[in-house]
Design a protein around this nucleic acid. Sequence first.
RNA 1: GGGCGAAUAACUCAGAUGGUAGAGUGCCUGCCUUACAAGCAGGACGUCGGGGGUUCAAGUCCCUCUUCGCCCA
Length: 803
Amino acid sequence: MTLSKRYNAKESEQRWQDFWTERGIFKYRSDSGKPVYSIDTPPPTVSGKTHMGHVFSYVQAEAMARYQRMKGMEVFYPFCFDDNGLPSERFTETEKNVKAQDMPRSEFVKLCLEVTEEAEKEFRDLWTRLGFSCDWDLLYTTIDPWVQRISQRSFLDLNDRGFVYRKKSPTLWCPECGTAVAQAEMDDREFSSVFHDIEFKLADGSGTIPIATTRPELLPACVAVFVNPSDERWNSLIGKKASIPIFGHEVEILGDSKVDIDKGTGIVMCCTFGDSTDIEWWQEFGLDLRIVLDNRGHMNALAGFLEGMYWKKARKVLVEKLIDEGFRKESRNIEHTVNVHERCGTPLEYLINMQWFVSILDRKNELLQCGERVNWYPSYFKVRFDHWVKNLKWDWCISRQRFYGVPFPVWYCEECDEPFFAREEDLPVDPLEDSPGQPCSKCGSTSFRPEPDVMDTWATSSLTPQINARWGESDEREGFMPMSLRPQAHDIIRTWAFYTITKAYLHAGDIPWRDVMISGHALNPAGEKMSKSKGNVAGDPLIALEQYSADELRYWSCSSKLGSDVLFSEEVLGDGRRLVTKLWNAVKFAASHLEDFDPIQKPELKPYDRWILSRFTIAAERATDGMEEYEYSVAINRAESFFWKVLCDNYLEIVKKRLYSDDDKTGKQSAQYALYRVIYGSLRLFAPVLVHVTEELYQAIFRRSEGHESLHLAPWPNPGFMDEEALKYGDMSLLIIEEARKFKSLSSLSMAAPLKTLEVSAPAADLTGLSRFQDDLMNVTRAENILWTEGTLLTVSVISADE
RNA sequence: GGGCGAAUAACUCAGAUGGUAGAGUGCCUGCCUUACAAGCAGGACGUCGGGGGUUCAAGUCCCUCUUCGCCCA
């Protein structure tokens, strides 16, 4: 029971981490009979190093897992990695300095596995050292064969339900990555560009018209010219034809209200495809299709003399020619935003390709209702989901022309081109290597062409609840959905939260989880979001762990309100150390006075002991309220201010004399009784955040009498003690202590200096209540006596021992 | 251009339901107190972004403007 003078966090944290692992303290036991609290842990993308942003958000969810466990829930808390898909591909390409298309798919996949395995080790090491209470037996990675099986099963199920279709359709396309991308993978970026006014001849020879464009290289792709019907300058042109400079083909001049009269010259060309408006016009007016870009951004034969050039070069060459031949009239330099691929920053094109889609546009209302049924913490983030759903413009394109990902379980019949889907019992399949094992159901042919595409990484990571439930597997967890909690950051509401809700709805008509807690970001000291792609990541957690203990880093992670971003800076990282040290010293002190205490006994309680027990009840209730709302910072702040201000600064000083003295047995026992309860209670309030130091103190002092194998298996405090009168007069009496202390401080006296008399004046109604605290008040102030007099207000005057 | 959030002490941040502005750090002055100097006691420091409005009363509610961050056109 003797605790060392100083707490050695480094040694202690390692020791308890080993203890938890060896004893399997955090193992998920499906047969425990307790209600399950399941957490849909975010699988971090394995595409770089860990940073403080990871620590920040994962710790917040981890603290909630601890809280729920103490509340008596059987906590299902897995860990996982998202290691398939484009992010991991690009990470591997950078790390190994290779290009995926330069090698066979199997060889590249091998490299990806190598690189991601290394990164995953680092993650796991970090989580362990932060004291995470996840059950590593529940680990999954999105490239696991059984996870791929669930992902392919999801595709087949959506297909069976008629929610999937394949269509040659204009899609967002990244020429750098050579793949289709989803709306959600789009970013925008400012670029300098040039607005060119180009002269088109009217086909009937009646004159020329100026057309403003930033993309002259798309002239050969021009299929129409549009003006606004309400534009007096140009609406008489509608119905005429224009001739494309240099390329010579003629297009119709059409009217549409989508043309912005004030932009450029008010006349705009429609190309297949420059932007999403072009696609709408193309569909609405049944225009020709003139594709001039290939999948890698080079001009094709339709672009005539520009063939083979990358679009940038083609633009330059064409503009020179336009100038030479007098078609380019004017130009203006502009800054404008361009849609780019978030992974590589390349401006996106719209290209026509065969792609797989999940229909979502016709189910916006149902998805909004699902969003309604989920509890969002903090609530204001739900609006982001709503707006995203309402503003959806495309169905979800789930095919990617990439290499490292979950393949589509699909072949196409060489004879009749009918798609042929893998059988459930064959999953997972890679059509590039496996064969369907059956003849075509339509024409009987046995000759198949594999689908070479892989699925969008979100198509798999949107299934994390189903993966956790082992949906459709032989060991499926029954009654597992909806899960209890999805913790995630706010930047991926439109992707991860949205797609997960979508999948759960399409597969089962249900929500994926009841609660979602949205965490903020750790910003670097400059106040910017830390992200791997921006290269502005500050604070390597493994280095931080050399300097600060895990409990200190956890304290920092839990110091801000849920959902708000927080600045990462070296100074605040040390804040938790104060509390850890204080906790250590106070509990050590308490322990030294509890040696001879029998927790079973219930003595008659003194007023201040009733007071502190009542104060603790309030603190615990407030902390619980915070935790119930996923506001860990509210909980820790309330616990901390109770512990430090009320318990340490006042109560411990008040009862010190009684604890040290054996003259008053009942007084001592009463103090011990209260001390035991509030100290043990405080430890448990801090346990979800300061996981190591609280365990160390529990094991040293309370384990024997309380019997729980770990503090983290002890029940969350739910004290019922309340004495309103003791609470009222105890609080009031603090003013007397304060005045005595102020007197000593102003007189440059030690707090231990004796006082002669305290004259306390108070309203008659309060005198009796206050004077019950007299003995302890004399102890804590070292006053020889206290004079109680009647007055209108509570006032205190101090007479020093020297006078 | 739209949406969401933020603006409070020198710094980092708290401040349900309107009711005398708070904490930690930093600063100043004391104090080695039978847990803790990594501490304790005391102190100084704020037109709560600007401007309107509602109210007996506004950091808090309403309108408006400014700045910053995020998300999306």
